[in-house]
Nucleic acid binder design. Structure first.
Length: 505
RNA sequence: GCUCGUAUAGUGUAGUGGCCCAUCAUGAAGGACUCUCAUUCCUUCGACCCGGGUUCAAAUCCCGGUACGAGCACCA
């Protein structure tokens, strides 16, 4: 093939196109039609719970593009449903904080849909007045018939005055939920049935299901659906690029039809596919909420849960999360990723900082026999001797080792000396000190001197279980929240004076 | 059922007609360093879903098949 090309170059060079040498792309794909400083992106969660691992993708990807193009990232609360997925008041505080933690910067604008209702009403009326929308009084089932049979619903022929009159009845309480919706006129023979005369606004019973925001409560009966609300809001905010899950592809098409009616230009759009994390499987905010309320989890930050809060609490850094999502990119493939991929990013982001500590699971006390020094010092971080040493006091001649290690007869105490344990069934375990120099290949184990050990609990979330391992931690003075590496076990985060949470190995 | 979308090593990912007997990361195996089963470094392994077509040339374009996913809600 290459040979053929060479011949062609000789004989008929005009047949070959000249091409630039391509470089491997770094990071996210190029944003189409983007202009430096003029890019506006948004991330629009429903505040019906705290952010989860999946939300992080939206924040990271949109945030990264905003940063890359000197643009803006809007954090928008799509809180227009009070019945099926009712918002949670705390989330309005928590989500911006979590987003900032994840991004490393504050979102440039925060928009709350429920506060933008006048805009949506204005556009709804405009839509009726210009006659590309109508009030439909068919039931859901009745309309479904029209949709599948590609026939127009009779309400479609209402004149403008009639539609405005019905609009009034939707708003004044004459109509109850189910009585009427506002639909956008499209061609009824569109190939994709999902798009045919799609619903834009509906009535909610906000007397029984008030909006949780005190300023909203039962103020409105008619609420926009996502496709309408989002479309209008994107236009108002001047959004230039929308990057979201491919489950919203049909939403884009609906919204494009609305944009055409209004004479607007739809933003550039990109999609990502579904991501499953092997260890978590499927999860939804609503399901988590039910499970927490049922007492299956300790709260939104239960380390078994895939919430951002839980991951953060457990010791996953925002950098690891960012690197993880950027690496996955914005392909439309549906993928399944093991948690170890995230952990590998996390190790990279914490190992160089994490001080080393000894933690003894199932401690066994050992009496040291023979000559040894009064204390032993080991490095706080083996790759950073300048950070100093930690010192174990040995004047009591007693140390702790893990039960699992105690059955081995010849081991080496890390940083100290070889020992030979002698196990008499009645007496406590004793060990004869051997060579201080390392002179053979015997296994190296971690240990703790009696006077440097503090009782501690290591919380381990594994296989859906939450286990509390009681043990001994090396005495230290690191502040709460510090990431440490517990030698031979893995990384952990210090929660308080006597508790650590296991991050990963 | 209708509609839309996706298919590259075990897992992710680069690649929009010749640079590709295919990139990078992760993983696995081996090794170096190391008084941690960590970190770092080195080596090796391993992939273009299938079948047609277009073309001098196809991972890349077209058609068909298969598989997987999503939408068809008065949820977001």
């Amino acid at each position: 093939m290459a040979a053929l090309q060479a011949i062609l170059e000789e004989e008929a060079p005009h047949l070959l196109e000249k091409r630039e040498k391509k470089e491997r792309r770094e990071g996210l794909p190029e944003l189409k039609n983007a202009e430096k400083g003029k890019v506006v992106l948004r991330f629009a969660p429903n505040p019906n719970g705290p952010l989860s691992f999946g939300h992080a993708r939206g924040i990271v990807i949109n945030g990264n593009y905003a940063k890359e193009w000197d643009g803006e990232l809007i954090l928008r609360f799509d809180d227009t449903d009070t019945v099926v997925k009712p918002p949670l008041n705390e989330a309005y505080q928590q989500i911006p904080e979590e987003a900032e933690w994840l991004l490393g910067f504050k979102p440039h604008r925060i928009v709350i849909a429920s506060e933008q209702m006048p805009h949506y009403y204005e556009h709804a009326v405009l839509m009726l007045e210009r006659n590309f929308g109508y009030v439909c009084q068919c039931s859901g089932e009745a309309f479904k018939e029209f949709r599948v049979s590609k026939t127009e619903c009779p309400c479609r022929n209402n004149d403008v005055a009639r539609n405005l009159e019905l609009w009034g009845k939707m708003n004044d309480g004459t109509f109850v939920p189910g009585d009427a919706v506002v639909r956008v006129k499209t061609a009824m023979d569109l190939k994709n049935p999902a798009l045919r005369d799609w619903p834009a606004l509906r009535i909610q019973n906000t007397a029984e299901h008030p909006h949780p925001r005190p300023s909203i409560r039962s103020k409105y009966r008619v609420w926009p659906l996502l496709d309408f609300q989002s479309a209008v809001e994107d236009q108002i905010q001047g959004v230039t690029h929308i990057i979201r899950g491919k489950d919203l592809m049909d939403s884009t098409r609906k919204q494009t039809l609305l944009y055409e009616h209004f004479g607007w230009t739809y933003p550039e759009t990109m999609y990502w596919g579904r991501v499953k994390v092997h260890e978590w499987g499927g999860f939804s905010t609503s399901q988590m909420r039910r499970d927490i309320e049922a007492g299956m989890f300790t709260g939104w930050d239960d380390p078994r849960l895939p919430t951002l809060n839980a991951l953060r609490n457990r010791g996953i850094t925002s950098k690891a999360l960012r690197d993880f999502w950027v690496e996955l990119g914005v392909t439309q493939k549906d993928i399944s990723v093991p948690l170890s991929t995230l952990f590998s990013h996390n190790t990279k982001s914490i190992d160089d900082e994490a001080p080393r500590l000894s933690f003894i699971r199932e401690p066994v006390k050992v009496e040291l026999k023979g000559e040894h020094s009064d204390s032993v010092s080991v490095e706080i971080h083996p790759n950073h001797p300048e950070r100093g040493m930690r010192t174990f006091d040995l004047q009591s001649h007693h140390i702790w080792i893990e039960k699992e290690d105690s059955v081995k007869n010849e081991v080496r105490l890390k940083g100290f000396a070889n020992i030979e344990t002698s196990n008499s069934p009645t007496e406590e375990l004793s060990a004869l000190i051997g060579s201080v120099d390392r002179n053979d290949r015997r296994p190296i184990i971690h240990w703790l001197s009696e006077s440097n050990a503090t009782n501690a609990t290591l919380i381990v979330a594994e296989d859906g279980e939450l286990n509390r391992l009681e043990g001994l931690i090396e005495s230290h003075s690191y502040p709460h929240g510090t990431m440490v590496q517990i030698e031979r076990i893995g990384y952990a985060r210090i929660l308080d004076d006597t508790t650590l949470i296991f991050t990963h190995s």
